[in-house]
Design a protein around this nucleic acid. Structure first.
Lengths: 187, 187
DNA sequence: AGCCCAGTGTACTGGGCGGTATAATCTCCG
DNA sequence: CGGAGATTATACCGCCCAGTACACTGGGCT
């Protein structure tokens, strides 16, 4: 499963054969078909696993999203994660979604829920900042959260294509500047 | 070639067979191998064609990017394009890049140049706004252009996954608000 | 007419794919 | 020990894939 994830990131789900995954993981075919009914199920499981892995990895950060430092931490973490793979993979969830969202409805819905959960965490953080009076009362928390998710996802694609963090970090800088433009005098 | 593009958008390049393309376009195999040496070349040609098509389609808008109305027009055009395909495809260039950038270096580089050309058009527009005194003198034109490209790309992925323009249009709204926050008193 | 040849239709090939069948092995319990 | 059931290795199957071979067409030239 972890082998499958690695290969999917490198060559896409459709571009990876079951035999390849098996030889990389050192297991046999009977094991595979014992745990999964077919390749599509494997793809969905890998995708769901990546989603849970990402959300778990960021869960601590998500709880700190009620401060500017929290958002800084979020973008730093994303950049470090991308750098640790030398900007070669971008976002495994986004990549798989791009490849399969149009043809596999279950993958599409799982991805949608992933974005929803990310957005919800951001909404929570921004809302409590608003309640504390750090954000202006007329701040569009929902739209802003969508905006953050969009920028994060776009930035990860930029990294993958450009093999560099330059565009992504510039985008993050501007995103943060915009977020901060909603702060009140008190904050 | 246009059939190939349509199928690639729906099921990805790796998920589309040559036979499928041929039966959809009503041509034979000998024609295909007369014009292309192999499938990879077709993929690259389709990708390059999509890039030129997109840039040509936006060329008029790119020339108007020296005004707020120009940017409004850009985002409206992108949204209309996405809507006309019922948000099922997102960005064909971004999708293909997500799928293949890690394994096909030529596709990656073509995509990078596509982003560069888009960015250059935005830089031109913002620079002339700056020279006319509509943007603050300390505006980071380069970074801002990267930011716009990133948001556009992220928004197109959001449309594809969510099958709705809500996230995208919220993101565009906030992007515009941020751009406008750089205007001078005179503008 | 006779020839040529770029362009086209189509049958074919070898290999790799997803998936299955079957036999061997391990594990647990009497 | 012995046997039953779960787990695993491996040989295999049919299909579909990318790519090739080859026969055919029709228009231009002599």
């Amino acid at each position: 499963m972890v082998s499958a994830a690695r290969l999917f990131a490198r060559q896409g789900a459709r571009g990876t054969s079951i035999d390849e995954i098996l030889s990389e993981s050192g297991t046999g075919k009977s094991q595979f078909y014992h745990y999964f009914s077919d390749k599509d199920e494997l793809i969905r499981c890998v995708h769901a696993m990546q989603i849970e892995r990402m959300l778990a990895l960021h869960s601590v950060i998500f709880e700190q999203l009620d401060s500017w430092e929290g958002f800084e931490l979020l973008q730093d973490t994303v950049l470090h994660l991308l750098e640790s793979q030398r900007f070669q993979n971008g976002c495994p969830i986004g990549s798989l979604a791009s490849e399969l969202a149009a043809s596999d409805e279950l993958v599409r819905i799982d991805t949608e829920q992933y974005f929803d959960r990310k957005k919800a965490a951001i909404v929570r953080g921004l809302t409590s900042m608003k309640l504390r009076g750090e954000l202006r009362a007329d701040t569009d928390v929902q739209g802003l959260a969508d905006f953050v998710v969009t920028v994060l996802q776009g930035a990860k694609l930029m990294c993958k294509v450009r093999r560099s963090a330059d565009s992504a970090s510039a985008s993050f800088r501007h995103m943060m500047a915009y977020l901060r433009s909603h702060r009140t005098a008190l904050a």
